[in-house]
Design a protein around this nucleic acid. Sequence first.
DNA 1: TATTGTTATACTCTATAACTATA
DNA 2: TATAGTTATAGAGTATAACAATA
Lengths: 175, 175
Amino acid sequence: MSRRSAKTTSKAQPFGVPFLLSQVGAHVAGCFAERIAPLGLRPYHAGILGVLSHNAGITQQALSDLLGMFPSRLVGLLDDLGKANLIERRASPSDRRTYALHLTKGGRDALAKIGKLATQMQEDICAALSEKERAALADMLNRIVDQQKITPGVHPGYRRMDGACGEEESRPAKR
Amino acid sequence: MSRRSAKTTSKAQPFGVPFLLSQVGAHVAGCFAERIAPLGLRPYHAGILGVLSHNAGITQQALSDLLGMFPSRLVGLLDDLGKANLIERRASPSDRRTYALHLTKGGRDALAKIGKLATQMQEDICAALSEKERAALADMLNRIVDQQKITPGVHPGYRRMDGACGEEESRPAKR
DNA sequence: TATTGTTATACTCTATAACTATA
DNA sequence: TATAGTTATAGAGTATAACAATA
């Protein structure tokens, strides 16, 4: 194609799919972080709101399990969301040690805003692709998610990097 | 273990391309980190080796510019690579303040190992895709890289998050 | 005076451990 | 005794500032 001006950049190199995925993924994540910053939120917060919308009433323990993060790390994030009145910790009648996590009205509103923002981002990020290609890209990525046994809708960024990668089939419930 | 049985994951949801890209990208990055760990390297190190292979003799200042990171942050990474005898800082005859960065034989060997490892990873990550699809995916990602003005071969992970995202056309050379 | 590379410092983030209150 | 949630502590990682040598 068109060669770029001299600059320090390298010439057209055959970068592999893994590098491209990681590169574009990091770029997208950075863009997303920038765009939700005005809402007073960080990507971690947004991800939790999303998970809560599909898992109403989940406990903190179960949520930290699902996200693959330490419970102690979750506390601060939930505190943030609580202070912003986006979630509430409802006391559980059966077991008074646990809280049931729920989105508030404000939380659902925030999530809707994030959704619009994500739609806009898709438009920007995929500007170089046709409608058909975007669908094909989404389909391929979904199949990778499935084949790699990534939990749908859960971002690996929460995960503590122990043994999250492929290699073996064993997934010994991590305890 | 009553709570783990319910499989708290959400049902099939329409996750957008940006989320999928970020999700898969983070997964791939984690896998890559795991796989190069036995070489005593982290992704940052590998990325620098790759950049140096196409920019032999670059100065630290120019490299930190290219990567978008603070020079002081670069020092430690180059120290690591130097201690492992993968790069060398050659004294510059014209300007004795600067060093010219070069890969050593060991550095080129390490880079070759990383390349094989990346090829293997591509096989694993793309297991769900046909050859044709892999090519289509790479092509689409390359076009996104181009359209989003991401520097080819440079991972955004180095970048300090100031204003790296799209929005405007202005790119005021960031001094 | 400005610039390159380096060191020093402060701040953020996260993992681990200790604690409480329930069970 | 074990578990849910929290708090405390410590370690890693990074941004900023200050510095010495050279231009």
